[in-house]
Amino acid sequence: MTAPLIEFQEAALRIDGPVAEFSHQRPQSRNAMSMVLRDDYERMLDHVSRRRDVRVLIITGSGGSFCAGGDVKGMNERLQNPDPELNSPDAVRRRLQDSHRWLTPLRELDMPVIASVDGAAYGAGFGLALQADFVIASTRAAFCMSFARMGAVPDYGALYTLPRLIGLARAKDVMLTARRIDAAEGQALGFVHAVHAPEVLLAQAHAFARKLCDGPREAAAMTKNLLNKTFETDYATMCSLEAYAQGIAMHTPYHATAAARFSQGQPSAYDWDRPAVPS
């Protein structure tokens, strides 16, 4: 039975058991990051974050593109508009700050987020993919920090996320050259987790998500939250946060069940290395 589809203006959300899939649905524009799509993200995150039954979120594109970046036609129209509420340095600042109203919750979501990238992930689309915890790409995926081509500065959090994923020198290369990076190079650089053929990409993303669903909800959420803070936090503070988090984790039903299984000689319910049982 196919899970019901929740339709937004330029995207759609399907929740299949513990896995939510949010797909960009404007392939005619290569799923460019429009103001409408930003609003769809905000509404989707509000919905998913309230669902205790959802354990993993997949974000993806449609029509062979993940997200081709900002809406350049819309940018050009704004540049021709004399209204300072639409065309001024402050207007740009406000629009970008508004984006972080949903980019930050996406990054901080209390569940793993997977970006399933087929085709173009350019500019803001690349920045969006980097907000995920895992990037799974097709063999035809292409990543580009294309901002320099437009005389712009990388945004959507990329100045923060990319150097932490691949190192400062490599981030300078990727951002200052604005060159195209294929999936294989993305994997070599370290921001792509896995590469699959386009026809099986989404199925592989769902299989990966369902393996993550077997893990501990609370411990995974706290581990993700702490890792997101680790480069800005001193050792003593991180150890203190670690202790508080462990106090919570070791009083969850998941931990109690795992400890009981171990003491009874039963295998762990969450064993990533255990071969999957054929369905």
Rank of each mutant, 00 (worst) to 15 (best):
A171M: 05
Y41W: 15
S138I: 04
E77G: 05
D214V: 06
R78T: 08
I58F: 08
C144W: 00
E185C: 00
E199F: 00
A258W: 03
L79V: 01
M75V: 13
R93D: 03
G63N: 06
G125Y: 02
G186Y: 04
P4E: 03
E185I: 01
V153T: 13
D71T: 04
A152G: 06
T237I: 07
A269Y: 03
S62Q: 03
L109H: 02
D118N: 14
G186M: 01
P84V: 00
R43L: 15
F143L: 02
E232H: 12
Q25I: 07
G17Y: 03
Q80C: 10
A158R: 01
D173F: 00
C239M: 15
N76D: 12
D40W: 13
D271T: 05
Q187D: 06
R52Q: 13
A132L: 07
L162H: 02
G265V: 02
L5W: 06
A20F: 01
E7A: 15
H251P: 02
S116P: 03
E232Y: 12
M75P: 02
L165H: 01
D16N: 06
L57I: 10
H47N: 09
V56E: 05
D40F: 14
R140V: 13
R55Q: 09
R14K: 12
M145I: 13
R164F: 02
Q131G: 02
R180N: 06
E199S: 02
Y156T: 10
D182N: 12
G215M: 08
G119S: 02
D155M: 11
D90Y: 00
E77W: 04
R95T: 11
S146M: 10
P27G: 06
A260L: 11
T60Y: 06
T233E: 02
V56D: 07
N76H: 13
F8L: 04
D155P: 02
R217W: 09
A152M: 15
Y41K: 06
D83F: 09
P105E: 09
R140I: 13
A12I: 03
A260Y: 00
Y254G: 08
R95I: 10
G61F: 05
D53L: 07
Q25Y: 08
H251L: 05
S99Q: 11
V200L: 04
Q9H: 14
K211I: 10
I59V: 15
L176P: 02
Y160H: 14
G70N: 05
R78E: 09
G127H: 00
A178N: 05
A194S: 15
L226Y: 01
A256L: 09
D118T: 05
S146P: 10
I248W: 11
T233K: 03
G186W: 03
G63T: 08
S23A: 15
L109D: 04
H255A: 14
P82I: 04
K229P: 00
H24D: 07
H193I: 04
Q204S: 13
P105R: 11
G265R: 01
L5Y: 04
T223I: 14
A12Q: 10
R149A: 12
R43E: 12
I6T: 15
V36G: 09
G70C: 06
R52A: 15
P154F: 06
T233C: 07
